[in-house]
Write a protein that binds this DNA or RNA. Structure first.
Length: 425
RNA sequence: GUGGCUGUAGCUCAAUGGCAGAGCAUCGCACUGUGGAUGCGAGGGUUGUGGGUUCAACCCCCAUCAGCCACCCCA
């Protein structure tokens, strides 16, 4: 055991059980995305570093991307995010696409981070965007998708809230305090950190970036005003529409939500686990110029991204992940001994031909062992062809759930098996 | 990148610097045509790795790797 080469730091292995959970999550994301008419797409998993150098933020590329030189000497990165690949894909066909584009994706990403809870170096991310419009209806739709995802997963509004703010509203309020440009950026940072520092440290940070006492007081008033959204026509419209769509209960106004990325220019939002030790599980917002940075004409859009690691932790925490029963629709055909082996082989083949998932035990060992194997896999139908059955062309089918068994002709047995696995699947 | 905690059997964890153990799991038998139970027995270890201190190290010291947690950052 000790000689096994370790897996790469921050990676995960998906044993069949974890793989089943991953596929379940994928299915949930697919169902939610497509119910709003979004199409699945994907970009390359590797990209030239230049793609990200253009925008993306220095830190993401320089410190968080996996970069390597290929044999031709180009610097290649394992994609740390999808946004720029998406932007290029849009730009390349900018005049052919039918707008608004509604696209979603679920795929792997890599970031060279220090692994900890909810954070790995290799992870999956759900990205979903509507591109080419700039309207409260579009903003509301993305929020509704987010809320619908949680509802589909079985998460209640008490468990997860989508916290919403608007960049323009905040900019306007800060401008009233005489905060603009560079100071505005720093003040956004300040707001972003409020929950992470105690008040005196936070105030010190405010002084540090150059806020006056009056401005600091003003910022505090903004942050304490939960009704501030009523000064934003866009947010008023969005909340009204969410009400009509029946998902208003999942969404709350919160002036603390700012988000780190510079390119957000309108609505911004994060979904938070409201329970103990809650964290953000997804984030997104409205951007004004997605495509311009990769050489297209500016196009507005709105979208969000959700990592699978935090999402899975959240769904597990609230008991939303269904019990996975991998073999409840599968029958095990035992091998009694060498003499009946051929009949077992043949019978298994017949079952498969009739569309029944069939496992054949691969050696003639004690039936006890074969039954135990079936039990541990979760198989609930077991077929036995011993000397008696073999002579008469029969097979015995045992139902492990109710412990009953029937002996019938091999011809008719498929129907018996079908009933057992169907009733229990 | 910074700081803290933790690495002992497959898993969960014990073991004053003095013989490395338990429970669960696994395998075998009781039980030669039938799974979840019970009893008995067995196997399984370079104590993460590499150095150091010591007559003697799972234990103390240094380094390193990994996991967890908090920063940083971010979806």
């Amino acid at each position: 055991m000790k000689n096994i080469i370790q897996s790469v730091k921050g990676t995960r292995e998906f044993y069949p059980h974890e793989m089943a959970v991953r596929r379940w999550l994928y299915a949930l994301i697919e169902k939610t995305s497509e119910s709003f008419g979004y199409q699945e797409y994907d970009g390359p998993f590797i990209e030239k570093i230049d793609l990200y150098a253009a925008k993306s933020g220095e830190e993401l590329v320089k410190e968080q991307a996996f970069v390597f030189a290929d044999r031709g000497g180009d610097l290649i990165t394992l994609r740390p995010e999808l946004t720029l690949s998406l932007a290029r894909m849009i730009a390349q066909k900018q005049n052919e696409l039918t707008y608004p584009v509604r696209w979603w994706s679920f795929g792997p990403f890599w970031r060279y981070e220090k692994p900890q809870k909810g954070r790995t170096r290799e992870f999956f991310q759900w990205n979903i965007d509507m591109i080419g419009v700039d309207s409260p209806v579009a903003d509301a739709e993305l929020l509704a998708i987010c809320a619908t995802f949680f509802r589909n997963a079985g998460i209640s509004p008490e468990q997860v809230s989508i916290l919403v703010n608007h960049r323009q509203l905040m900019e306007k309020k800060l401008l009233e305090l005489g905060i603009a440009d560079d100071l505005k950026k720093k003040t956004f940072q300040l707001i972003d950190r409020k929950d992470k520092l105690d008040f005196s440290a936070w105030k010190a940070f405010a002084t540090d970036i150059g806020l006056s006492n009056d401005q600091f007081t003003g910022v505090n008033e903004i942050l304490n005003n939960r009704e501030l959204w009523q000064q934003s026509p866009e947010l008023i419209a969005v909340f009204n529409q969410l009400e009509i769509m029946g998902v208003r209960e999942y969404v709350k106004y919160d002036p603390h939500i700012i988000r780190g990325l510079d390119y957000y220019s309108g609505i911004v939002f994060e979904a938070w686990d409201m329970g103990k030790d809650g964290r953000a599980v997804l984030g997104g917002g409205h951007y004004g110029n997605l495509v311009a940075d990769v050489g297209g004409s500016p196009l507005p859009g709105v979208g969000f991204a959700m990592g699978d690691v935090m999402a899975t932790i959240l769904l597990e925490k609230y008991g939303c992940i269904p019990e996975i029963k991998p073999f409840h629709d599968t029958v095990l055909v035992t091998i009694f001994d060498e003499n009946t082996l051929q009949q077992s082989l043949g019978f298994a083949a017949v079952l498969r031909k009739k569309g029944i998932k069939t496992i054949l035990y691969p050696e003639a060992v004690k039936l006890q062992k074969q039954f135990k194997f079936a039990d541990r896999l979760g198989v609930i139908a077991v077929a036995v062809i011993g000397p008696d059955e073999a002579l008469a062309g029969n097979v015995t089918i045992k139902n492990l759930t109710d412990h009953t068994q029937i002996t019938c002709s091999q011809e008719l047995a498929a129907e018996t098996v079908r009933q057992i696995v169907k009733i229990n699947s």
